[in-house]
Simulated assay, not measured.
Amino acid sequence: MIRAIAILLGYQLAGEVTARALGLSLPGPVLGFAALFLTFLVWPPLHAMLANTARGLLAHLSLLFVPAGVGIVRHISSLGDQSVAVLVAIVASTALAIAAGATVFALVDRVTRR
């Protein structure tokens, strides 16, 4: 498990170093994930080495959202003046996302029935 975590963190570090060295606006972990995916394609045994550890991390993924929740709670007072705008933005973006999903579903349904 330690080896698998070290491999995952190594890919993340490589992606971060690459993104910063090249001045890319793409996040380093995304580059690292892409490199890991390419490595899986080239060397499939790596997938078997990382699978159990990755499943364990995904099972506890909700723990990674704790820092964001703490940040929101810490700055809740600064949200007070803008709470109406934030609420409107959340409701509107949710409604637009649902509408976009329904529209795409209807279009795909229409195309696939032909």
Rank of each mutant, 00 (worst) to 15 (best):
V73R: 11
G15F: 00
F65C: 11
R113A: 14
V86L: 15
A54P: 00
A92T: 07
Q82T: 12
V42P: 04
T112Y: 12
L8K: 00
L8I: 08
T94E: 10
P29A: 07
L87C: 15
H60D: 11
A51F: 15
L41I: 09
A85N: 02
L38D: 01
A97F: 04
I5W: 05
G69V: 04
S62L: 04
D81E: 13
L46G: 11
L26P: 00
A102Y: 14
R74Q: 07
L22S: 07
H75P: 03
L63N: 04
T112M: 13
D81F: 09
L61D: 10
L107H: 02
T94V: 11
A51G: 02
A106S: 06
L26K: 00
G32L: 06
A14Y: 01
I7G: 00
S25P: 06
I98N: 00
A95K: 01
L26R: 12
G56N: 15
L8E: 01
R74G: 03
A97M: 09
L87W: 13
L36S: 04
V111F: 15
L36N: 01
G69D: 05
G10L: 06
H75S: 15
T94W: 09
G80T: 13
G69L: 12
L13E: 15
L31A: 01
L38H: 07
L58Q: 13
G56T: 10
W43I: 14
G80H: 13
A85M: 10
L31V: 11
V73N: 06
A99K: 08
L9Q: 08
T112W: 05
F105C: 07
V42Y: 15
L79N: 11
S62E: 10
L8M: 06
T53I: 09
T94D: 08
A34V: 12
V66M: 12
Q12Y: 14
S78F: 12
I90E: 03
N52W: 13
A100W: 07
V73F: 15
I76S: 12
Q12K: 14
P45G: 10
L79P: 05
R113H: 10
G101E: 05
I98C: 04
H47M: 05
T53F: 05
L22G: 06
P29R: 03
G101L: 15
A48Q: 15
V111G: 06
A59G: 04
V88F: 11
L79M: 13
P67H: 09
A68L: 14
A85F: 13
P29T: 04
G28N: 02
V70K: 03
L38C: 11
A54I: 14
A102S: 09
A92F: 07
H75N: 13
P44A: 14
H47G: 08
P29G: 02
A59N: 14
F40S: 08
A106K: 08
A95I: 04
P27I: 01
V42C: 11
S78P: 02
R113K: 12
L13Q: 03
Q82E: 15
L79T: 07
A92P: 00
I76T: 05
L61C: 01
A21D: 10
L79Q: 07
L61N: 01
L31G: 05
A97S: 08
G23E: 04
S62K: 08
A35Y: 10
S77F: 12
L50Y: 14
D81L: 14
G32F: 03
M1D: 09
L22T: 14
R74D: 11
H60I: 12
G28H: 01
L57C: 06
T103R: 14
V104T: 11
V66I: 15
R74I: 07
R20V: 00
S83V: 10
T18E: 04
V84N: 06
